[in-house]
């Protein structure tokens, strides 16, 4: 099997501070993973704010250049493709879905404008009828129709509809990989599962691989095939989602799982924070420089000391 997307030892450092007190902060340290061709999957990156998950997503999209390491798409490095035909070809295959559906469309412009532009530029469709057909097909795959969306401004649609329109926008150019950065965190509770279920349908029916970035372990468990947990820029645990979340090994992963507010024992006020796990994950972070990812079998990696 050949790699579709290969994130190879990628690190990103940001320079912080003023002229005299410049320090380097690592947003992402030595991230490695690959998505295979031919086996679409939902790959979830879990982390809290400051874990580097969004920076990693931006690097995969080519919006940020890695300081170290390389990201390759179908064997070709993606950095340096800032414009031109190669960049366009890459953008046709790798498309983003953004976090806030209310921000993702210009409030002064019609929503279909973006879908149309994507179809025109990336699929080279010019005829009116073909454009409409392509747009309708993409919208149908997310449960909308062109008639519902055409001529509408963002404020005329609900958050769930907008997020689906945004996904349809990305799907118009028939991408191989969809990078969804917290796609449901700003969507109302009653509409949230529709989006999450949609991501699963995309994988099963359209063969699109999804890199799902979230802080929500519950939805991650619900839809993902593989999961990668990040703490302060470092990958601490990685493997099959169910396996990792049913029995997390790294203290930080265990802390995250323990902090998820359970709904099964609703009304019992079970809020005692896991102090020992907090302590353990802090210790793990302090000794992170001297740790490495250890193979545990079946593609599972856990960061361990030594």
């Amino acid at each position: 099997m050949s790699a579709l997307l290969h994130v190879d030892g990628v690190s990103k450092y940001f320079a912080m501070g003023g002229l005299l007190s410049r320090t380097q902060t690592a947003a992402v340290r030595d991230a490695n993973f690959r998505l295979e061709q031919g086996t679409p999957e939902i790959f979830t990156i879990v982390g809290e704010s400051g874990s580097g998950k969004t920076t990693l997503a931006r690097m995969i999209l080519g919006l940020e250049t890695p300081t170290e390491g390389e990201i390759r798409y179908k064997g070709n490095p993606i950095s340096g493709l800032s414009f031109g035909a190669a960049r366009r070809a890459f953008m046709t295959d790798v498309q983003p879905v953004f976090q806030n559906p209310f921000e993702a469309f210009n409030p002064l412009k019609r929503v279909d404008r973006y879908i149309e532009s994507t179809a025109k530029v990336f699929r080279g469709i010019t005829a009116r009828a073909d454009l409409d057909a392509a747009m309708d097909e993409a919208l149908a795959s997310v449960g909308l129709s062109l008639a519902e969306v055409r001529g509408r401004y963002p404020h005329e649609l609900s958050g769930g509809q907008l997020q689906r329109a945004a996904i349809a926008r990305a799907l118009v150019c028939k991408p191989k990989v969809l990078i969804a950065d917290e796609p449901v965190s700003m969507v109302d509770a009653s509409l949230r599962m529709a989006i999450v279920n949609l991501l699963r349908t995309l994988r099963d029916d359209l063969g699109v691989s999804v890199i799902y970035i979230t802080h929500d372990l519950a939805t991650a468990y619900y839809i993902s095939d593989r999961i990668m947990i990040m703490q302060k820029g470092r990958v601490v645990e990685m493997g099959a989602a169910r396996q990792v979340l049913d029995d997390p090994q790294h203290p930080y992963s265990r802390l995250l799982k323990a902090s998820v507010l359970s709904v099964t024992d609703a009304g019992q006020g079970n809020l005692e924070p896991a102090r020992d796990l907090m302590e353990a994950s802090r210790t793990a972070l302090e000794h992170a420089d001297a740790s490495r990812l250890v193979e545990q079998g079946e593609g599972r990696l856990v960061r361990m000391a030594g």
Partner: peptide, 9 residues
Amino acid sequence: LVASLPVIG
């Protein structure tokens, strides 16, 4: 609302 909350496990 209640049913749409996923649960680990």
